[in-house]
């Protein structure tokens, strides 16, 4: 009579698929994971405590380092809170520019996400293509604020400075090229049989669970809940812009991946509108 027993497997904090420093202790039965215990805190930097001893302006650079792939969005979150506290009205011009950079940053974020997803599945090519386009966006950001990742660009009351020379041409070129690139990725991934085998029906998150756990963003919309804070509780100038919240009902990893792909198109569309309105001759203030 064969005897089986469960065993513990430690994953991380330095492991190729943790992408950073995250540690799991898995309880395994053969190849099946029975239980996961998460051990957190390897990247605890005490940012809240630091914030206590900084002025509002001094703290903006720290927000870049919270989620270091989408620094612009973090900047905005903090800045918005400060503006609401102080009752500052931001000129429309600046709001459009903010929306433009935030949507580009969303594209960067999704590119890195999809690339890492495919890297974990074993296909190393996608992340390199994703980083190629990411580099173009970072070039744009660098011409705006001088940094590639830690921008410190969105400030209370507006942005750090207006656009430099030649920015609009570069931005338009990017907006023109990017849909074709996303089509390339879709061609590489979407109809791949092995991708379907690995991602369909994996990581199921039912709509009820998603809401109860407080999941937001593409994860929530991949579970079939059509909730986008840009649409349902609009901030900045999102209510003037035309876009749709991308939703998929399948609740699995593949659905979340498709939501991200669709959102990149939407972000491009939003960015294009923002760029157009920012330099519209009738725009006042």
């Amino acid at each position: 009579m064969a005897r089986t027993e469960e065993y513990q497997l430690n994953v991380g904090p330095v492991h190729p698929s943790t992408h950073g420093v995250l540690r799991f202790v898995l309880t395994m039965d053969g190849e099946t994971i029975k239980d996961t215990e998460m051990v957190l805190g390897q990247l605890h930097r005490g940012i809240e405590k630091i914030a206590e001893s900084r002025s509002y302006l001094q703290f903006i650079p720290y927000t870049d380092r919270l989620d270091y792939i989408s620094g612009m969005t973090n900047n905005y979150g903090f800045t918005k809170a400060v503006e609401d506290l102080a009752g500052i009205t931001v000129p429309k011009k600046a709001e459009y520019l903010r929306v433009f950079v935030m949507e580009l940053n969303r594209i960067v974020n999704h590119l890195v996400c999809i690339g890492s997803l495919l890297l974990d599945l074993g296909a190393a090519t996608m992340i390199i293509y994703g980083f190629r386009e990411r580099h173009k966006v970072l070039d744009l950001f660098e011409s705006l604020c001088g940094a590639r990742m830690t921008f410190n660009y969105i400030r209370p009351g507006g942005v750090r400075g207006d656009i430099p020379e030649g920015f609009i041409d570069n931005a338009k070129e990017f907006l023109r090229d990017m849909p074709k690139r996303i089509g390339d990725y879709a061609q590489l991934i979407n109809d791949n049989e092995i991708v379907h085998m690995r991602m369909k029906g994996v990581g199921m998150l039912s709509p009820e669970d998603a809401i109860n756990y407080g999941v937001t963003g593409p994860m929530l919309r991949g579970s079939g809940v059509s909730y986008d804070i840009r649409k349902d509780d609009p901030y900045s100038v999102y209510e003037e812009l035309d876009f749709k919240a991308c939703t998929r009902p399948e609740c699995d990893t593949y659905a979340r991946y498709i939501v991200r792909m669709d959102e990149m198109y939407e972000s491009l569309y939003i960015a294009e509108q923002a760029l157009k309105r920012r330099w519209h001759p009738t725009l006042q203030g």
Partner: peptide, 20 residues
């Protein structure tokens, strides 16, 4: 190199090994 990134700089480490 060993695959080990701790924080923000790890992303730049990745972009160093990418096409550009």
């Amino acid at each position: 190199p060993v695959t080990s990134g701790l924080a923000c700089c790890a992303i730049e480490m990745m972009s160093m090994s990418m096409g550009h």
